[in-house]
C-alpha cells in the first residue's frame, strides 16, 4: 500500500507554497512514497523510555544582554527586495483570511 497519495502530495505542496505542476505531482507522489516507506523504519524503535534529542549540544540558558547593537540602514535592509515602496517591502494583495497572532 502506498504511504502517501497523489492528493496528499498536492495538499503538502499547497501547505509548502509550491505551485507544482500536474506532471510533477505524478513524479513526486511516486518518489515521496519510496522515501517515506524507507524512513518509516524509525518506527521500529519502540522502547517508550527513550527521550527525544532535539539538540546535540549540552547547553542551556544561552542569553544575550539587553544592549542595542547597530541596525542595517534602510537601504541595506531593502537592497535585496524584489519590490519596495515608501521604504517598505511591497507585496501583492494579501488574501483576506484569518491570521494567527
Amino acid at each position: 500500500m502506498a504511504a502517501i497519495s497523489r492528493e496528499e502530495v498536492a495538499h503538502l505542496a499547497r501547505l509548502s507554497r509550491l505551485a507544482v505542476t500536474e506532471e510533477e505531482l505524478d513524479t513526486f507522489a511516486g518518489q515521496l512514497d519510496v522515501i517515506l516507506q524507507a524512513v518509516a523504519q524509525v518506527g521500529e524503535v519502540t522502547a517508550a523510555d527513550i527521550p527525544p534529542t532535539s539538540h546535540s549540544v549540552p547547553l542551556t540558558n544561552v542569553l544575550r544582554d539587553d544592549v542595542v547593537t547597530p541596525c542595517l540602514t534602510p537601504e541595506e535592509a531593502l537592497s535585496g527586495a524584489p519590490d519596495a515602496e515608501e521604504q517598505r517591502f511591497r507585496v501583492p494583495r494579501i488574501l483576506d483570511e484569518d491570521v494567527a497572532s
Partner: peptide, 24 residues
C-alpha cells in the same frame, strides 16, 4: 519594554521611520 528585540540587538522604541530598526 526591553531595550532590544527578543532575538537581536535592534531597538524596540515605538515609531521610527519604516525599516530603520532592523538587522539580518
Amino acid at each position: 519594554g526591553t531595550n532590544t528585540k527578543m532575538f537581536c540587538g535592534c531597538p524596540t522604541d515605538f515609531g521610527g521611520e519604516p525599516n530603520t530598526r532592523v538587522c539580518p
